[in-house]
Amino acid sequence: MNIVPVAIIVLVMVAFSQLSKRNILRLNVVAWMVIWWLAIYFALSYGINPPLPASIIGMFMFIVSLALAAYLTTSTDDMEAAKSAFVNFIINPRYALPLILVMIGLPVVSAYNVYSDMTQPPQPPLSTRTIHPPPPPSITFKGKTIDLIEDENPYRALKTDNPAEFAKHVENGRRVYFQNCVYCHGDNMAGRGIFAHGFDPIPANFRDPTTIAMLQETYLFWRIAKGGPGLPAEATPWLSAMPAWEKFLSEEEIWDVIIFMYEFTNQEPRAKEELH
């Protein structure tokens, strides 16, 4: 969070509130709506680091606009006050100058927006990227069928049945990870390896509780074994530079590295669910 802009916004809001309470500044309901709208807009635009994409700010502001409109029209008194303020602004000669400024200002702002949009360097169109590609029901790994729905990590049960043996698999997974994966996924698995910034998007952050903790181990097996080339035809482009590791690793090595990923990040895989 960016403390300074947020603090400024809060201070300005408090100042408005106090000035209004002491009748120094008379603000009607419409003015308050505008102030709230702007405060939320500036907080979303400048108060969060890294900055939010324009698309998400647009969506949030749409919701905020709806909510403010709902508030304004919930009370007939407020609505009438807003209507009369608007009409008064248009017909009262006292506001002639501000009205003229608004009448000139609105098209100027629109024109400026068009100008600034047209003078931007060309951008590729935005895409709704899907983070979790859907896996097929089963894959063939070196001639063997792996059922991604029914199968489980064959070494997972060792964690409780035979911890010493399990530790060996974790160690083997560590070796596999640091020999092959660390360059992109990073030494702390946050997706910031030394090659990471050559890719767009950068590799997934496995420490994030919303990535591998949401998935079954068979999903990870599929992604590691088949890599980017094995991604489904639907909902492309996947933009994955992940190699198909089945060409370089054995089945046991892949299961071991999966175990190591969960152990290292202190997360549990999603369990196979019971059918009801």
């Binding site: 890294p50 900055p51 994409p53 324009a54 951008q123």
Partner: peptide, 13 residues
């Protein structure tokens, strides 16, 4: 999130 390349780079993905 739906983001331009520039925005995605700032977010780190």
């Amino acid at each position: 999130l739906v983001a331009s390349i520039e925005e995605a780079r700032k977010m780190g993905g």
